[in-house]
């Protein structure tokens, strides 16, 4: 039962990331929808732990890159080294060759290094030295960036942000969660001993199940109305792209699957909308709106068909 597996995953992750069920669920949905995830938050709220937990739970091969301003593309994708024994260049794959890549503080790297990663995200393959290497399957990137610290950073432009299916933030834990965190065991220990929840092939069946979630004509009407309003309606100066529309639908499917349903409801679309549309929309007016306010503005302007 894909939905039962999905619930088990959510519960297991929430045992470690305390008080962040919604964010955890969004991150899971993002992965089930086969999208890349951008976590935007201050340090220390559990971004890295979340990535670790997901990798462990899903049984994915994990790599981490700490982005710095002196980083080169070769530090990400790998480098060809001259081998003296057989007198030829041999490609040494970089950390990008992983199933789940954690790109920490992606906005610290120069645009050149960023684009090397973002190309890999889009193409799911690496071209170097005139050769092409396929990245492992599945391939996910969880990137983090710190919005508060803007000195010496290179914020991702819109075109790059669009590559991420979702952008979420975790935020401080509430009081009870914080208490449990303080009183509990070391998170790193917990993650290290976290058993893999999935059997071989179960992840693929989850992907398949997410793709199979039913989307009726009435829901397509609704999604279209949302897209149209974001483009032509009042209140938005930058609307949702067709890719954003596809992503919205895929994310809503995964969200419905996590909710144990075989069909998508408008509620599913509305639930994933802040994460999917928050980094793609821009509101009119001078004050920038947060993703939740943006999504609410869009949702409340479009009646259900």
């Amino acid at each position: 039962m894909p939905s039962r597996i999905a619930r088990r995953l959510t519960e297991a992750a929430s045992r470690i990331i305390l008080g962040k069920e919604h964010a955890v669920r969004l991150a899971l949905a993002c992965i089930l929808a086969r999208g890349h995830l951008l976590i935007e938050d201050i340090p220390g709220v559990g971004k890295t732990t979340l990535a670790h937990v997901l990798a462990r739970l899903l049984g994915l091969q994990f790599q981490r890159i700490q982005f710095t301003s002196d980083m080169l593309p070769a530090d990400i994708i790998g480098v060809s080294v001259f081998d003296q024994r057989d007198a030829s260049f041999r490609f040494h794959p970089g950390p990008v060759f992983a199933q789940l890549l954690l790109a920490d503080e992606i906005n610290r790297a120069t645009p050149k290094a960023q684009s090397a990663l973002l190309e890999a995200m889009e193409e799911r393959q690496i071209s170097a030295e005139g050769q092409t290497w396929r990245l492992p399957e599945p391939f996910f990137v969880i990137a983090t960036q710190n919005p508060a610290d803007q000195i010496g950073t290179f914020p991702l432009p819109e075109s790059q942000l669009d590559r991420f299916l979702m952008r979420i933030s975790l935020g401080y834990p509430d009081r009870a969660a914080e208490r449990a965190l303080l009183a509990g065991e070391d998170r790193r220990e917990l993650v290290a001993h976290l058993p893999t929840e999935l059997q071989a092939g179960e992840l693929d069946s989850l992907f398949e199940a997410a793709r199979q979630v039913h989307v009726g004509p009435r829901l397509l009407d609704y999604v279209q109305a949302l897209l149209e309003h974001s483009r032509a309606g009042a209140g938005f100066s930058l609307g949702l792209s067709p890719r954003a529309g596809l992503g919205l639908l895929a994310a809503a499917r995964a969200w419905a699957l996590l909710g144990g349903r075989d069909h998508v409801l408008p509620e599913d679309v509305q639930a994933v909308l802040p994460a999917v549309a928050g980094h793609r929309l821009r509101a009119t007016g001078d004050t920038p709106l947060g993703p939740d306010a943006l999504a609410r503005r869009l949702v409340e302007a479009v009646p259900l068909p």
């Binding site: 409801l265 408008p266 509620e267 509305q270 949702v299 409340e300 302007a301 479009v302 009646p303 259900l304």
Partner: peptide
């Protein structure tokens, strides 16, 4: 019901 509110919500 709000015009935009889904049935479950």
């Amino acid at each position: 019901r709000h015009a935009w509110e889904g049935p479950l919500d």
